[in-house]
Design a protein around this nucleic acid. Structure first.
Lengths: 338, 338
DNA sequence: GTGAAAGCGCTAACAT
DNA sequence: ATGTTAGCGCTTTCAC
């Protein structure tokens, strides 16, 4: 594959030593070199179409200028914006992101983690956090730099960037209660994730606060099918007078849509449904989904910022960052039927 | 960042020469080495937690085991499955994909292309093709290995993996004509892309073949807004008796939904709409979208296969691959009103 | 079957 | 301000 012009070639053409070329071409060191020489070197480099070899540089500097990004599954629509957010911070600073998927498998996660380490990534952004995360604990012991994103891990001192989930749930309740709902179901995210825990916790607290009768339905995954299955359990049994569903995320809410439809019920007339995340196209579903917006782009950008801060100053105390959320009211919520 | 165990360390512990460790640890060369030595080396490597340094290896072998993937925008939902497809072929073979976005900018594309080249990628998978693609022409001259995916580029001899767009359009027509539609609009994709050209061409041919009165509405981008704007133009004017819309892709079809709704029309009662791609969640829109399914996962996997074939045997004549398509009939198409 | 030695392309200390 | 030198960690000829 092409591109066999080296520093030595440029040096030869410019009539200087390779070391000088290296200095002339790097922003940090070009002031150590005569302006005229810099120009001469630049001209030679351009003429030859010189591109520095990142692997040679990285080998020497022990820096790959690459960060590993570990996500459960890129086809989950919250991740592409997050990856774009990461890139938006990384690329202008000369870094690249290597994105890998785990499909929820701890074993796959270990494999990709090691392979990323073999590629000498300078740090990780990890979106696969779960509450008891062995790998993260080990990574910390090995001195690997990590920023957690979206989900946190317990007992690990890595910085984390999350949305303000508690506030999101509270805003949902304010909206629902104003619409007259007093019996509300929570389609709780699967166990073992901080997002699930925090949202369920906030749900219970909000029930207290707003004097609402709540019921928590566990789910097995953050997926449409799991949401549908959980909702089926409610609708197959006695009605119990619930008029609204607060789902752990938009996918679960979509599952609730499916279940409702299958049971001949209409959302929002028979049952209001609220999602979480405001994933792309949430406004194009039927009905357009009321949900809590979290900017996954910002989440990614912020995580990248925290990671580079650590890379450049390993001592920097990067704390948890909580991003703002906002309720987006669309067509899946309506006044409670009396 | 951690991980400072080298070959030399392993060699010292195992009591052999670094060269021997290298041979013992590589599948291709381990048969050159005594079985007992291999075991000894393996044990030492495991004990120290040795991970080979990919940059050092790459520098020596001139192979990065990395491929560059250039997409317009990862948040366009057809790309995540494609990237997963690429990964599905690459990762088991020891390769990684470095994905970058261009946001449709030729300048950005040049920049990311060069930066990927600097990272010594062994080849590219390019999803940003347009009909007259300067960069691809240059890349070919420079001997850069590329596989085009989804879209083709004219006048470049790179292999391309695309869907069978012509067949897709034909199947749409068979469906629509069976429903009694005889006046059909095409929301054509923007100029300069092979997908737009081929689909529009197939539309015109199908109009001939099925004796349908067609009208082509150009759009400025493959986006919801562009689709809505184009559809607005039709609906703001005299009706002309059109009863169905064949959109250049699902996003344009979604734009048609919006325009229809804004004009107080109901899909599919007043107007049938067909998309193209069967993007994720197309079945969850309102109404669930009738569209042509193309497996973008397979597309990515196939592109990766073609690229690795080229990398491993640069002489291999990789031709264009056309993937099968299938019409997915959902709720956005209905019998034509008489 | 294994050791020795060179070198991939670059940067960074050191010397001048 | 620039040249010299060494070496990042690995693979791979060439010896033995």
């Amino acid at each position: 594959m092409a591109n066999r012009v080296t520093l030595a070639d440029v040096a030869a053409l410019a009539g200087v030593h390779p070391g000088t070329v290296s200095r002339a071409l790097s922003a940090k060191t070009e002031n150590q070199v005569n302006a005229a020489t810099v120009r001469k070197v630049r001209r030679a480099a351009k003429q030859l179409g010189y591109t520095p070899n990142a692997m040679a540089r990285g080998l020497r500097t022990r820096l790959s200028m690459t960060v590993g990004v570990i996500v459960p599954d890129l086809t989950n629509p919250i991740f592409p914006p997050m990856v774009r957010g990461i890139d938006s911070y990384l690329l202008p600073r000369g870094y690249s992101a290597l994105v890998v998927n785990t499909d929820g498998s701890d074993e796959t996660e270990r494999t990709v983690f090691e392979s990323l380490l073999a590629r000498q990534v300078d740090g990780f952004i990890v979106a696969t956090g779960h509450t008891h995360h062995r790998l993260m604990a080990e990574a910390q012991e090995r001195g690997v730099l990590v920023v957690m994103v979206n989900r946190d891990a317990h007992g690990v001192r890595y910085p984390a960037v999350t949305g303000d989930d508690s506030l999101g749930i509270k805003e949902i309740f304010a909206h629902l209660v104003a619409l007259g709902h007093s019996r509300i179901v929570h389609l709780a995210g699967p166990a073992g994730f901080s997002t699930s825990e925090i949202r369920e916790e906030a749900f219970r607290a909000a029930c207290e606060q707003f004097s609402v009768t709540g019921r928590v339905l566990p789910t097995s995954a953050y997926s449409i099918d799991a949401g549908q299955a959980a909702m089926d359990i409610l609708l197959d049994g006695p009605a119990e007078g619930f008029t609204a569903v607060v789902a752990g995320n938009d996918l679960l809410a979509l599952g609730a849509y499916h279940s409702l439809r299958q049971h001949g019920m209409v959302c929002p007339d028979d049952m209001s449904v609220v999602g979480f995340n405001d994933m792309p196209f949430a406004g194009d579903f039927f009905p357009p989904m009321t949900t809590v917006r979290v900017s996954h782009f910002d989440m990614g950008a912020e995580a990248a910022r925290l990671l580079l801060a650590q890379i450049e100053a390993p001592e920097s105390t990067a704390l948890a960052v909580r991003l703002p959320v906002s309720l987006v009211v669309r067509g899946s919520t309506a006044p409670a039927k009396r």
